[in-house]
C-alpha cells in the first residue's frame, strides 16, 4: 500500500535524519564530538540536519550533491579544515541555514553526498579525496580520511525523516 504524507515545507528548511554505518553504529554526540557507537536501547543517536548547496554548478559535478551537514541540536555543523597541516573533521558552532544563505558556497562546510545503492559517502569539498569515516572500534570519533576501505568505513546509511 502506498503511503501518502503531504508536507509543505519552506525551501530553507534542512532535511532531518539519522546516519549509521554498515556495522550498525550510529552517530552519537559525546561532549561536542561525534562518535560512532553501536545502536542499542538507551543510545540516542544525533539527529542530522542537512541541506543542499544552492550553487552546485560552481563545484565538481560527478562527485555527488554538495550538502551542508550539521546537527539539529545543538547548532553545530561538520567542517573540514587543516589542523597542524592535516585535514581534520570538526564540529563547529554554526547555523546551517546561515551557510545555506551565503552568496557563495562555503567549501569547508560542504561535503559531496554520493549514493551507491543504499549506502552514502560524504567527501570533503575543501579536500577532494578525503571522506568522513568511522573506525570499526566502538566509541571512536568520526574522522576524515583518504585511506578508503581499510581500518575504517566510509559507507553510511542515511535515513531521512
Amino acid at each position: 500500500m502506498d503511503r501518502y504524507l503531504v508536507r509543505v515545507s519552506s525551501r530553507t528548511e534542512p532535511l532531518l535524519g539519522h546516519i549509521q554505518d554498515i556495522s550498525h553504529q550510529v552517530w552519537f554526540l559525546q561532549d561536542q564530538t561525534l562518535v560512532a557507537v553501536p545502536r542499542k536501547h538507551g543510545v540516542i543517536p544525533v539527529t542530522i540536519a542537512l541541506i543542499s548547496c544552492k550553487y552546485p554548478e560552481t563545484l565538481e559535478k560527478d562527485k555527488g550533491n554538495p550538502i551542508y551537514l550539521g546537527l539539529k541540536e545543538p547548532e553545530l555543523c561538520l567542517s573540514c579544515s587543516k589542523v597542524n597541516d592535516q585535514p581534520t573533521l570538526q564540529l563547529m558552532e554554526q547555523n546551517i541555514l546561515d551557510l545555506y544563505n551565503q552568496t557563495e558556497p562555503v567549501k569547508s562546510f560542504l561535503f559531496y553526498h554520493n549514493q551507491n545503492g543504499r549506502t552514502s559517502t560524504f567527501e570533503s569539498v575543501a579536500f577532494p579525496g578525503w571522506f568522513i569515516a568511522v573506525s570499526s572500534e566502538d566509541g571512536c570519533p568520526l574522522i576524515i580520511t583518504q585511506d578508503l576501505g581499510k581500518t575504517s568505513t566510509t559507507d553510511f546509511v542515511l535515513s531521512l525523516q
Binding site: 503511503r3 501518502y4 504524507l5 503531504v6 508536507r7 509543505v8 515545507s9 525551501r11
Partner: peptide
C-alpha cells in the same frame, strides 16, 4: 519568487512540487 515546496510521500519515492 520561488514558492514553498510541497511533498507527497509514497512507499518508494516522493513527489515534490516547487
Amino acid at each position: 519568487r520561488e514558492g514553498y515546496e510541497s511533498e507527497v510521500s509514497f512507499e518508494q519515492y516522493n513527489k515534490y512540487t516547487v
